[in-house]
Each structure stands twice: as C-alpha cells, then as structure tokens.
Nucleic acid binder design. Structure first.
Length: 546
RNA sequence: GCGCCCGUAGCUCAACUGGAUAGAGCAACUGCCUUCUAAGCAGUAGGUUACAGGUUCAAGUCCUGUCGGGCGUACCA
C-alpha cells in the first residue's frame, strides 16, 4: 500500500509540473487520530518552500490530479496545515485480512534484510560467575534483535565472545582454591579481592566430592580455574536456554592470539604510522581521530589491553563474511567502541558494517534505595533467581518493555508483584481468550451447514479498527528491526490486544447467525495469529489456556 | 573539567525518528460479572514535556546555554 501511494502521489506531482528533482522522498505515515484517515503524507508542506506556495493550495492541487484505484482508496482529502489523508476501501481491508488467514504463522515476515549475513554478538560475559539481572537486559535485547532481523529476512548468527585468561580469571581460580582448602579443613586466607559468592563454595564442594583431597598438591590455581570455568559456563548455558536463548557460537578471545591475528593487527597499525612506542608501551594515535589522549594498545608488561583484541575480533568477524555485525553493549562501553571502529577502519574494513546497540543500565532498587551489584562482592541477583521469582516470560518481557536508551528501574522488592500484574499477561490473556472462543465456535461451525466465508459482514467500528491494526503488524516488526528497538513491537501488540478487547466487548461471536459467527471468528483467529507471531519474536509463550 | 546518555501525569514508561488535540500501565475515584475467560471493559481526575533562548509552515523531538541525574574519562575488562 505504501508503495502504491508513493507512486500515485509522484504521478500527481509530475502532472502539476513539479520537476522530478524537486520531489522529496514521500513519507507515508499512519495518523494517530483515525478521523484523519488511514494514511497521510506531508509532501505538500515539504514542497511549500520550493514551490513558493501555500501548503494547502499545493495539497489541493495534488488531490485534484491524483488518480486512485477505488478498490484500494475511497477518499483523498486535504486537512490541517496541508496534510493529504487517504482512506482505505473496505474491500481492501477484507482482502488483506484474508491474506493474514492464509499466511498464518508466516504473517509479518518481510525481506528488507534479505541477503544480509548478520552476526549479533551479545551477553559476552566472562565466566567468573552466574549471569545477573544486569546481564539480562543485554541477553534478551541481543536475542530479540536477532529474532527481529530473522523475521525481516536476514541470515543471523548469535555469538558469545569471552575471555578465559587474565587477572579476573586467575582470581576466580584462587578463590576456588581457597574454598577448596577450607572445605578440607586446611587453614587458608581468602585472597584479597577474591570472589565471595556462594557459588564458589558449591564449585569447591563439588571438587571435593569428585576428586577428594587430590588437588591439595596443586601448586597454582590453574586446575581450579579450569574447573570453575567449565562449571560456570554450564550454568550460563542453562540460564540462557531457560530464557529461550541459544547461542550459535562461542568465540574465545584466546584464538586471536593463537592465529596470530593480534600480532598482525598491531603490525598493520604500525605500518600505517598510527601506533608508536612510549614508556615501554605501544600506543594508538587516537588523537588523530579527535580524542584528547592517545590510547594504550599494549602495556609495558607486554600484555595487550582489551582494545587490541577487540579490534582484531571485529576484523575477524568481517573476514568471516558477515555483512552486518551488531554488538550489544552496556552504557559503560560507550567510550571504547569508537576506538574499535577507528581500529578496523585503519585495517581497511568498512566500519559501517559494524553497528553498536548501546543500552542504559538497569538500576536496581531494593527497599526503595538503589544499590550496585558486584559479582566479586556477591551482592547480586542472578537471572535464575529472577526467573524463579517471576517466571521466564515476565523476565524477557521486563527487559524488552522499555527503550534500550533509557535507564530501566528494577525494584527487587516488587518483583513478585510485577509477576502478578505485569502487562505481559495482558497479551497472553488476549491470546488465551481467543483460543477459548475459537474452540467453542469450531464445534458449532463444524456441526452446521458450511457457508462461504463472507468477511464483508465485518462492518462494526470495532471490527474495522481491529482489522486496520492487524495490517500494521509487518510494519511494526520492520520498524523495531531497523531501529533495533524491540519495545516498539510490544507497544504495537498492546494496542492490538486493546483493540481486540474492544471488539470482544462490542461484538459477540457465539450465538450470532452462522455467517456472521464465521466472519467474526476468522477475525479473532487472525488476531490470535498476529499475537502469537509477535510473542514468538519476543521469545514469549502464547498460551492457549490460562 | 571533558565525552556520551537521560529529564514527559503522583510512580514506571510511550509518542511511528520534525507533524494534526502529548498517550498507556500502575496508584486514586465512579460504574459494569444469570450471555464467548472480569488477569477484563467503559468513564473521571491528573501536563507550561526541567528551565531560558533559537531554527521553521510545524518542536517533547533539531541547535545553544543553564540546572538536575546516570555512565565513562586507567598501562582494569
């Protein structure tokens, strides 16, 4: 429809003598007030300046010269400061509704990202502890953006990037080692800055159970570290699976060292004259890219900072042939990604292929006061605990409800309460309610004489409003995918559920004449289809019964 | 100090990326269950979109400044 409108508007503009080059891109929008029609454009107002004419006059000219197909559009009118409003023909609505019924679980899919090979990198938490609610937003956002891109035609791979070397992991090993000794009654000091969480004790206990006191002879923490990593990764995978998230690949930072990618990266940057030595460290000339200071790539100890492997990692992604790489980052990484972007550009890659999705932090509130989580200090709430408390669906929904760009406040004391009246139930309830009606309607229809489906019986205002809302589904998905903002889809589904309940209260299905019952249950079925497809994209169940 | 993000109803958030009368959910108040699921519906009340300028046909949205909050600003990740 949008393309059709753009076409006839362009034709009308050419007809009234607007040069091709002066025609702006024609945006079709849906007015929020239905009295303004089903679609509207502001071209007349955009042309006011170039044509040196009043927008309303231009709009009137366009309307006079526009040729519409009466099977699609019944009315074109000038309104307000110069909008042109279009009203859809009812037959068009019925045809599109029929289309939803035949397309079913595929309805809403599109091809705007067709041909794209996308890598979505998310979670990427190092295996030092269980996933916390802090990681939750990252995990759910990344996975849902991946689903949105799949629905819009992209070939998507989900990747988890991790680092199992370095100081934090060493500390993890030392912490387990200390707990292990304590378990066996050996007097030991707990390492300064070690991981104090209860999970460390469980890992140590398991070690005792499996290997007894054999490991007391270990000189260093390596064996403990490796054991902890395995155990923690197992737990992380379980948590993700529970959240309906399945990673395709796990990428170990270490492989970048083994393959020589790190050395090659720094060599290339040196060749371009953008790296230099000072104080025993290797520096990247970030001042060349507008930063106040240059940045250390390799410390004087010979150990690279995280920026260097990050650059090499992104080069690696692009080498693997991905046409779009999406990184999901918390706001604390916001300053580091320009370095990565500049880095890959230095290496000769197209940085436009890397897209960063930054989300603001989850502010945790407990007893009315905000508090900070720390995996090391063990004052954190794990995702598993959250799911135990409110359930998997609510957990996903909770992280998706709001724009990634705003701080999300999470009140732990209210978590349970949220579980009881969270708006996710509104959507699931609407779906379950429809299924219940359909079960009853099917029995009656099956027993009755089969009549043809006549959708033109749907003339009540609530029916028309609902059909129009259903038709907006593909657009809602695309908008959410393009902007990487899943909450847009939630907003849409809420509106849909609300329009459905209006229909439910205004129009009965059971007990109506057979042909009307049939038409209305078809409308209900189409609504259930869209709700289910939408919830599937969000990774949430659409129950048939509640 | 500097950089990025944010400031919208009592609270938590939307607003189709510059459009028409700024909308939902909680909380409050008033109605509605002998009829398809009341986890629902209809309605009332609640706003100078932090503040001050600017840009234009049009600003919650863009620009400048001020105030307030968050996150960075490491040879930590």
């Amino acid at each position: 429809m949008e393309q059709y409108l753009q076409k006839i508007i362009t034709e009308a503009l050419l007809k009234i003598g607007v040069p091709q080059d002066d025609i702006p891109s024609i945006k079709i929008e849906t007015p929020k007030d239905s009295s303004h029609g089903d679609a509207a454009t502001n071209v007349a107002m955009l042309l006011a300046k170039t044509l040196k004419n009043n927008p309303r006059n231009i709009a009137a000219d366009i309307v006079k010269n526009i040729e519409t197909d009466s099977a699609k559009i019944t009315d074109v009118a000038v309104a307000g400061p110069g909008f042109i409003n279009f009203t859809y023909a009812e037959n068009y609505l019925y045809d599109e509704l029929r289309n939803i019924l035949t397309t079913g679980s595929e309805y809403g899919k599109s091809h705007i990202y067709k041909g794209e090979r996308v890598l979505v990198e998310f979670v990427s938490a190092n295996p030092t502890g269980p996933l916390t609610v802090g990681h939750g937003r990252n995990a759910v956002l990344g996975d849902t953006v991946a689903r949105l891109l799949q629905w819009t035609g992209a070939n998507v791979q989900r990747e988890y990037y991790f680092n199992n070397a370095g100081r934090q992991m060493r500390m993890l090993g030392l912490s387990v080692q200390a707990r292990y000794k304590q378990e066996l009654g050996v007097e030991t000091d707990f390492p300064e800055g070690g991981y104090e969480g209860e999970y460390i004790r469980s890992i140590a206990k398991n070690l005792v159970k499996e290997q007894g006191s054999e490991l007391l002879t270990e000189d260093d923490e390596t064996a403990f570290k490796e054991h902890a990593e395995t155990a923690i990764f197992e737990e992380i995978r379980d948590t993700l699976e529970r959240m309906n998230i399945k990673m395709d690949t796990f990428f170990n930072e270490h492989t970048l060292y083994e393959s020589g990618a790190i050395d090659k990266t720094i060599e290339t940057i040196r060749e371009k004259g953008l790296a230099y030595d000072n104080d025993g460290a290797v520096w990247l000339k970030t001042t060349e890219f507008g930063k106040d200071q240059d940045t250390v790539l390799v410390k004087s100890t010979g150990e690279p900072t995280y920026r260097l492997p990050d650059i090499a990692y992104h080069a690696n992604k692009l080498d693997r042939g991905f046409t779009l790489c999406i990184d999901v980052f918390g706001a604390d990484h916001i300053d580091t990604y320009p370095d990565v972007m500049n880095g890959i550009e230095i290496l000769g890659y197209d940085k436009d292929k890397v897209d960063v999705l930054v989300y603001q932090f989850v502010t945790l509130v407990k007893d009315g006061k905000p508090f900070k989580m720390s995996t090391r200090k063990a004052n954190f709430v794990t995702l598993d605990e959250l799911m135990d408390e409110v359930g998997e669906d609510v957990t996903r929904f909770f992280f998706l409800m709001r724009s990634p760009n705003t701080h999300l406040e999470f009140d732990i004391s209210q978590a349970k309460e949220a579980g009881e009246k969270n708006p996710v139930f509104y959507l699931q309830y609407a779906h379950a309610r429809i299924q219940s009606i359909l079960r009853k309607a099917d029995e009656i229809i099956d027993n009755a004489e089969s009549a043809d489906l006549d959708l033109s019986l749907l003339t009540h205002e609530s029916e028309i409003v609902l059909i129009k809302k259903l038709l907006g589904f593909p657009d809602a998905i695309q908008s959410a995918a393009i902007h990487r903002e899943p909450h847009k889809l939630i907003t849409y589904l809420n509106e849909l559920a609300s329009d459905f309940t209006s229909f439910y209260h205004d129009c009965r299905i059971i007990g109506e004449p057979e042909d009307l019952m049939k038409a209305r249950s078809s409308l209900a079925l189409a609504t259930a289809t869209v709700l289910k497809n939408g919830l599937t994209i969000l990774g949430i169940q659409a129950p048939n019964q509640m």
